[in-house]
Simulated assay, not measured.
Amino acid sequence: MEHRRHAPDCNPPLDGLDYSSPRPFSMWKSGHLDTLIGGWLQLQPPCLELATLALEELTIRREDLQARMKFANADLEPIVWLADARRSVRDVLLPDIQETAPKSSARGKVYVILRGGYTETNLWYGAYVGSTTRPIGKRFAEHRAGGPRSARGLPTHGIEPLYSLFAPLNPVASSRGKLREWETRLHECLAPIVPKVTGDVAF
């Protein structure tokens, strides 16, 4: 897979999809998922998260051959660590954050951005973890635009937000301390699974 710079647009979450579910596409028909995978991979930027989640469902059903060919034809790789990363977030972080759910006025958010530019040894993709009080789409645009509010590597290699790794955790308390706490916890949760995890960590 060649290193490429994808369009700086931000793919929105798929309306109505339960990103916290272990199998978000369990009720979808295989043929429909197969068709959607092809479409998602042709977008610019591609919806690699949705395509990978759909591929995982088809793999469970042992109906994934055509879908894998579509990844190959698009010269893209699925996010092979996504299922384990999602499981870790559900098992490690989700119970804690549900117990300390903030008030409805909370505006804090943690987020994860899929980062390309790595090698096959690193399974092609890494993750950047951050926190913000701004809309995720606007923060993603800042990362891709470069400048002081970006982060190393994201202007060129940022691909898309990985909603299934952070949507179930948000919102979090807006105070700087709480935001940094949950950003750090999310970073540490992903680090044993994702080959490359970047972002600020408070120790």
Rank of each mutant, 00 (worst) to 15 (best):
V80C: 06
S175Y: 03
L65C: 04
I113R: 01
T35W: 12
D9Q: 04
F71L: 05
E49Y: 02
P148R: 03
E49A: 03
L123C: 12
I60C: 10
P46V: 03
C47R: 04
H157W: 01
L43R: 15
D200S: 13
L50H: 15
L162T: 03
H143C: 03
A83M: 06
M27T: 13
N170Q: 06
L154V: 04
A106Q: 10
R152E: 13
E188G: 06
H32V: 14
R87M: 10
E63S: 13
S20T: 07
S88R: 15
A72C: 07
L190K: 07
D75C: 07
S30D: 14
T35H: 15
Y111C: 10
H143K: 06
I37D: 13
L169T: 09
P24R: 12
S174P: 09
D9M: 03
G146R: 03
T100H: 14
G137C: 06
V110P: 08
K178M: 09
A72Y: 11
T119M: 08
A141R: 10
R5P: 00
S131C: 09
S164Y: 02
L48E: 02
V201S: 14
W40I: 00
A54R: 14
C10T: 13
P135D: 10
R68E: 15
E57Y: 10
I113C: 02
I159Q: 01
N11C: 08
Y128E: 13
A54K: 10
S30H: 08
G16P: 04
R144L: 09
L76V: 02
M1V: 13
A167K: 11
G199H: 02
V80G: 12
T133V: 11
P78E: 10
W40M: 11
G177R: 11
S164K: 04
S21F: 02
P195Q: 03
F203T: 00
T35Q: 15
H157Q: 06
N11R: 12
G130S: 11
T100L: 03
N11D: 08
S164P: 05
T119K: 01
T198V: 14
P45Q: 09
T184F: 08
L65G: 00
G16A: 12
L154I: 05
H3F: 07
K178N: 13
R152Q: 09
D34A: 06
E2S: 11
D96H: 08
L154G: 06
D9C: 01
S88E: 15
A141Q: 12
W182K: 03
A85H: 12
